[in-house]
Amino acid sequence: MSDPLAVIAQLPGVSEAVEEARQAVDKLYRHRVLRRASPAVSAESSLRGARASAAIEGVDVPLDVLRRDEAHDPLVQGALRASAEMGRMGSTWRRAPRQVLARLHAVAATELTSQEQLGRPRSGDEGGVAVPDPLSLGPAPSAADAATRMDGLFDLLERPTKAPAIVLAAVVHAELVVLRPFGTADGIVARSAERLTLVEYGLDPKSLVAVEVGHSELPYGEALRAYLDGTPEGVAAWVQHCASAVSLGVRETVAVCEAMQRG
C-alpha cells in the first residue's frame, strides 16, 4: 500500500524541521512544573491557542479580556468553544473524523452562519454566497471538488503511515484551510484539527503545545499559498512552517511553565 505522507516526510528539509520540533516537545514534557500542574498548563495553552487562532482570522483580543470573559466577538467565541470541544473529541478523531469536523464546525460557527448550515459541508446550494478568503488564497474550490478532496483526506487519515504526526497534522490543516469545506470558520476548524492530530497521533498527548500561537507569529498565509501551488517545494515549505509553529508553540508553553514556577 502506498504511503503518500511518508513521501512528504522525505522532502528536502522536512525531516530536519520535524525532528527539531519533536525534540522541543520532548524537552517541554520534562519541565518540572508539569509534574504538578499539567492540566493548568494545558488549559492556559488552549486559551492562548484560541486567541491566536482568532487573531489569524483578523480578530485580536487581549488575553486578559478573554480571562474576564469579556470578549463577545462571535469568531472569538467560536474559537474558544472549538478549543474546549477538542478535549471531548480526541478518541473519536481516528475512527470518525467526519463527525469530529462537523462538531467542531457546529461549535465554532454557531453565531456565524444559519442553524441549518452548522456542521454541514458546502453543498453548492448556498445561493451564490461568496466563501470568505481572509488569507488571499483565491476562490474556494467548488462544493463538489471540495467534497472529493475531503474524501481523499479522510482516506489518508484511515491509512497506516510511517510519517510523523507533524506531517499528518500539516496536511490536515492545509487541506481544511484551502478547501474551505464549510464556508465559515474553516480556519478555526483547521487549526483545531491540526492540534487534535498532534495530540491523538502521539506528539503532544497532553495538549500542551500552543501551536496556534506559532502560526500567528509566522508568515501563515504565505506558507499556505506555497502549499496551494502543489509543488514538492511548496508542500515542503508548508510542513516546515508547521514544524516551526510547533517549536514556537513550545516556547510559548515553556513561558507559561516558567511563570507558574515563579508563582
Rank of each mutant, 00 (worst) to 15 (best):
D125T: 10
L47N: 03
V107L: 05
F182D: 01
L156R: 09
M89P: 02
V177W: 11
A17E: 01
I188A: 01
A130F: 06
A54K: 04
A21S: 08
A185C: 06
G138S: 11
V167D: 04
A17C: 06
A245M: 08
S247E: 13
H215K: 07
S42Q: 13
A109Q: 05
F154S: 06
E19P: 04
L228Y: 07
S142D: 11
E126H: 06
A52G: 07
A9I: 02
M1L: 06
A140V: 03
G249M: 03
R32D: 14
E212T: 00
L66T: 10
S46C: 02
G49H: 05
E212L: 06
A243S: 11
L224D: 01
A79E: 01
R251D: 12
S2M: 11
A236F: 03
V189Q: 00
L101W: 10
Q261V: 07
A169V: 06
E20L: 07
V177P: 15
A52P: 04
A43V: 07
V131S: 02
V65K: 14
A6K: 03
R103P: 04
A226Q: 07
E126F: 00
R94E: 02
A210V: 06
L11P: 00
L198Y: 06
A193L: 07
S142L: 11
R251G: 10
A146T: 14
Q99C: 09
A147P: 08
E252T: 11
A255K: 13
P139M: 13
T161A: 13
I166D: 03
S53Q: 12
G124D: 08
L218C: 15
A24H: 12
S15P: 00
A50L: 07
V239A: 06
H105C: 05
G124W: 03
A143H: 03
S136I: 10
P74V: 09
G78A: 09
L179Q: 12
E116L: 07
S15Y: 02
R195E: 05
P4D: 05
R103F: 14
V59R: 08
I166E: 02
G187W: 02
E175L: 05
L203A: 02
R94T: 02
A130Q: 11
P181L: 13
M1H: 13
V211F: 05
A170E: 03
H173K: 01
A50N: 13
A226C: 13
G221F: 08
R149I: 12
M260F: 10
I8V: 09
Y220F: 14
A237V: 04
A71R: 06
V33T: 07
P132D: 05
A6I: 08
P160N: 10
V33C: 08
L157K: 02
R191I: 04
R51K: 14
D64I: 08
V171R: 01
A243Q: 04
V65A: 06
Q77G: 14
A54D: 14
A109C: 14
L208Q: 10
P139N: 12
Q240M: 11
A37I: 09
G124S: 00
L118S: 08
G13Q: 10
L248E: 05
A52F: 13
W93Q: 00
A144H: 15
L137H: 09
A190W: 03
A130V: 14
P97S: 09
T113W: 13
R88M: 02
Y227E: 04
G249T: 11
Q240D: 03
A54H: 14
M86V: 09
G58Q: 15
L66G: 15
R88P: 01
L203D: 06
A108S: 10
A165D: 07
A24Q: 09
H173W: 12
S247T: 15
